[in-house]
Design a protein around this nucleic acid. Structure first.
Lengths: 176, 176
DNA sequence: CGGGAAATTGATACAACTCAAGATCAGTGG
DNA sequence: CCACTGATCTTGAGTTGTATCAATTTCCCG
C-alpha cells in the first residue's frame, strides 16, 4: 500500500496476447493498491523518478480500526474512484478518438491543478503509447488527434506536455 | 439504498446528445446506490417486475457504525466492483465486438449461476439495444455477433435469452 | 555529431457504423 | 382464431473512423 508523493505511476493490465490497457496514472497524492486482489491483475511502474509513502497493510488496518471516520473517508474516496471509472466507460464505449483525447487533456489539467496549482502547461510524463493504451486507441491515432488539436489552436505541443490555449473549446469537444 | 431481491435493474448514463451507456445490470442480490453522488449521474430502471429491499441511508450508516466488520465487508465488495469495472475498461478499449459479446455471455452465465444455480439457459431480460449500450456497440453489431455465434453452434438463441452449447469455446473467444 | 527510440505523417485496409429493408414477435380487437 | 399494428430484431449494402503498415522526421542522450 503506497501513496505517491512525487512523480507519476502508471497502472496497467496486459492480455495474454499482448494487448495492453493502461488503467490509470497515479499523480502525487494518489493512492496505490486499494486492495490485495488487483495487485495480481494490475501492474504498476514508475514514469521517471517517483517517491512514495509506504504503509503496511496491517498498520493501515490498525489505523482504520483506531479511527473509524478514516474508514468512511476511504470509503468515500473509493466511491469517487468508482464514479470516475464509470465516466471512463462512457468515454471508451461511446466517444470518438477526438473526444477521448480532449477529455484526457481536460482531466489531466484538473488533476495537475489540484496537485500543484500549475495550470498553464499540462505535463504529460507518459509516452504516446501509454496515452493510446489509456484511451483505447493506437499511438498513430493519438498522434493525429494531438496534431489536429494543435493545428486548430486549441492546444500547443510543448516539451513533455501541452499547453491549453482554449479551455472552453477543449471542454466542449470533450463532452461531445 | 436498495438491494434487488427479484428481477433485473438497468443502470445507465446518457450524454447531452443522447448517446447512452449502460453501466450495468443489477441482478437479484446486487446492491443499488453505493453512494449519493452517482445517483445524480446514473439512472436506474426496472426491466420487468422488480422487488427490492430498501434501507435508508441513516439506518445503513447506523448499521455500519454498530458492526464495523460489515464496513470492511462492504469495502471489500466495493473493491471487487472496482476490479470488475477495470476489466470492463479492457473489454471496451481493447476487445473486438465478437470478444465483447462472448465475454458478456460468459459473465451473465456466471452471475445467474450464483443467483439461482440455473446454468442451462442464460436469461437476457434486457433488449438488444441495452446490450449494445452496455458493450459500446450498435444494436446491429450485437445482433450480427449473436447470429454468428449461433451459426457456429457456440450458443442457441432461445426465448428471452440464449443457451450456451460450447462454454469452453465461448470462454476462449472472450479472452482473445 | 551520430544513432536509436519515440513521434509524426501518409497510404491503405478493415471492423464496426449507418442507412434501409424485411422478418419476427407481442399484443389487440374484430 | 386470425388479421392488424407497432416494436424489436435481423439482414443486407454501402460508408466511415480508426487500425494497420510503411516511411520519414524529431528528439534525446551518449
Amino acid at each position: 500500500m503506497h501513496i505517491v508523493t512525487e512523480g507519476v505511476v502508471r497502472l496497467h493490465k496486459t492480455l495474454a496476447d499482448g494487448r495492453r490497457m493502461v488503467i490509470g496514472f497515479a499523480l502525487p497524492g494518489d493512492f496505490l493498491g486499494f486492495s490485495d486482489r488487483d495487485v495480481h491483475a494490475t501492474s504498476a511502474d514508475a514514469l521517471g523518478p517517483v517517491a512514495t509513502c509506504k504503509i503496511s497493510r496491517e498498520a493501515f488496518q490498525e489505523l482504520l480500526d483506531a479511527k473509524p471516520h478514516l474508514m468512511r473517508r476511504l470509503h468515500t474516496e473509493l466511491i469517487h474512484e468508482f464514479t470516475l471509472a464509470q465516466e471512463r466507460l462512457m468515454l471508451l464505449g461511446r466517444c470518438s478518438a477526438r473526444e477521448r483525447m480532449a477529455a484526457f487533456f481536460v482531466n489531466m489539467r484538473n488533476r495537475w491543478k489540484r496537485v500543484n496549482g500549475q495550470v498553464a502547461n499540462v505535463a504529460l510524463p507518459m509516452s504516446r503509447q501509454d496515452i493510446a493504451d489509456f484511451l483505447g486507441l493506437t499511438i498513430e491515432t493519438v498522434s493525429r488527434m494531438i496534431t489536429t488539436l494543435a493545428r486548430e489552436r486549441v492546444i500547443v505541443i510543448v516539451p513533455d506536455g501541452i499547453r491549453i490555449l482554449d479551455l472552453p473549446r477543449l471542454e466542449a469537444i470533450a463532452v461531445g
